[in-house]
Amino acid sequence: MPTFTETAKATKKKKEIKLVGVDMYIITEKGIPKFDDIGPFKCEFISNRGTKVWPGFVSPDLLQVNWYRCRFMATKDVQDADVNTFLDALTRKGWWWSAAQKLWNYDGEAGFSKAY
């Protein structure tokens, strides 16, 4: 078996990172959530088990669980502090959430997937 004396170090390219939204993981037994705009954040879509359930066509047979991914996109330039305010507002409105994932663009390209 050959031996190697050096372990490769990955190159890293500096990228411009821009905050553009938040994925919220909401737990509810009341079906597909509905949201008004919250500050600069507007709900773009909601998915359940990875399948988009709002807006658009939803099969009446679709299995849904009590955990929804709700994508909120910023309608203007936002900072991390705006996300803190948003999370606080969402919680005060009574939404129970398991996690939040900030959405960033890297060099202008989305660093997050779309829902099916």
Binding site: K12, R49, Q101
Partner: peptide, 16 residues
């Protein structure tokens, strides 16, 4: 056929 890592929930959680 509908779950697992096919749920299309992927993020670049940092630049690396």
């Amino acid at each position: 056929n509908t779950e697992d890592s096919y749920a299309a929930i992927e993020h670049m959680v940092s630049d690396e």
